[in-house]
């Protein structure tokens, strides 16, 4: 019983931390985008406009909740909840500091990847149940994209698994902390795998240049076209939380997670996460968008073969490479 209570408490703490971090990430992105576009970004609420996402949240809470008459009743309401749950669920296994992870799973990485794969379902459910053609097109695009990019994502994640011989994220990070970061050595395996992982992650979390399911210039607001108020806020939050957690994962897999000198581990993890997050948004605010067929061709023609080669290379490295 005590154990359950502890797990529940931990879950509450983690979820709220992630949400708080997400609001900060939203502010960070708006300011960041503003500076890239020679604007100021939010300035009026709180110091440097820090409270802007909070104001948005209070605003969205008060908005009327509209469900279109023709929409599928249950699924339409379910989709945003599912979306937020999936995005936050992945946070459970991210190792925060030496020996500290919300949930210590032997198959942590598998769990994360599985949850990541499910994320596409709420998006499609939202697109389909809205009874809106733009949303439907967005949902169809999301399915095609996510299923394709799942493959290179898994292949890229296999490289650290093969190299460390573990599927437990904490163990992967521990090995990196004791030896070298995977992106540093063997760099000819780690760096390309890291790059593929990042690209696939961008596609999974629907960020530009892979944001075709949203594609505001084509599909208005994609799958979320019909969502109002808090339901939209959940999607919005899920999107950012997903990117944030994916950044943390990439940091754990390839950049040694909490490993770093002087400061405690959590600081390093946060720093690495936000550097990656910033990189994603740097890309987002400077690139244009692919067309869906180009997107898929990149995936199947380049990323998947490269991923297979990397996994094979990792196997060879473990079998015949220098023993640590």
């Amino acid at each position: 019983m005590n154990e359950h209570l502890r797990a529940l408490l931990l879950a509450v703490v983690v979820v709220n931390t992630v949400l708080a971090l997400t609001t900060f990430a939203i502010w960070f992105e708006r300011k960041f985008a503003g500076r890239m576009q020679s604007r100021l970004g939010p300035t009026r609420v709180g110091p440097f406009g820090l409270l802007q996402p909070v104001a948005d949240a209070f605003k969205l809470m008060q908005k009327e909740s509209i469900r279109p008459r023709q929409a599928d009743r249950v699924l339409f309401e379910l989709a945003p909840l599912l979306g937020a749950t999936c995005a936050l669920g992945a946070a459970a296994v991210v190792p925060l500091a030496p020996g500290v992870a919300p949930a210590q799973l032997d198959l942590g990485l598998l769990f994360v990847l599985a949850i990541g794969a499910v994320t596409v379902l709420p998006i499609f459910i939202a697109g389909w149940s809205s009874n809106n053609k733009f949303a439907l097109l967005g949902g169809m695009r999301a399915i095609a994209q996510s299923i394709s990019y799942e493959v290179p994502l898994l292949l890229a994640a296999l490289v650290p698994i093969v190299l460390t011989g573990s599927m437990d994220l904490s163990e992967i990070v521990r090995q990196q902390a004791e030896g070298r970061w995977l992106a540093v050595w063997p760099f000819f395996l780690g760096l390309p795998a890291f790059a593929i992982f990042l690209l696939a992650m961008l596609a999974e979390s629907n960020r530009i240049p892979f944001d075709i399911p949203e594609a505001e210039s084509e599909l208005v607001a994609g799958v979320t076209t019909e969502y109002t108020g808090m339901k939209f806020a959940l999607f919005y939050l899920a999107e950012y939380a997903h990117t944030l957690i994916a950044s943390a994962l990439a940091a754990a897999l390839f950049l040694g997670g909490w490993d770093g000198p002087i400061a405690p581990g959590l600081h390093w993890l946060l720093l690495k996460t936000f550097v990656l997050f910033g990189f994603i948004y740097w890309v987002r605010w400077s690139l244009l968008r692919f067309r869906s067929d180009q997107l898929l061709s990149i995936c199947w023609r380049w990323l998947v073969p490269a991923g297979v080669a990397l996994v094979a290379g990792a196997g060879a490295w473990v079998a015949w490479g220098p023993t640590p």
Binding site: A33, M36, Q37, S38, R39, I208, P209, D211, E214, A215, E216, S217, R284, W285, S286, L287, L288, R289
Partner: peptide, 16 residues
């Protein structure tokens, strides 16, 4: 904007 969306690189070029 048409190519890159209002929430992406397109809007950066647009604002510039």
């Amino acid at each position: 904007l048409d190519l890159g969306g209002a929430l992406g690189g397109g809007s950066t070029l647009f604002l510039h």
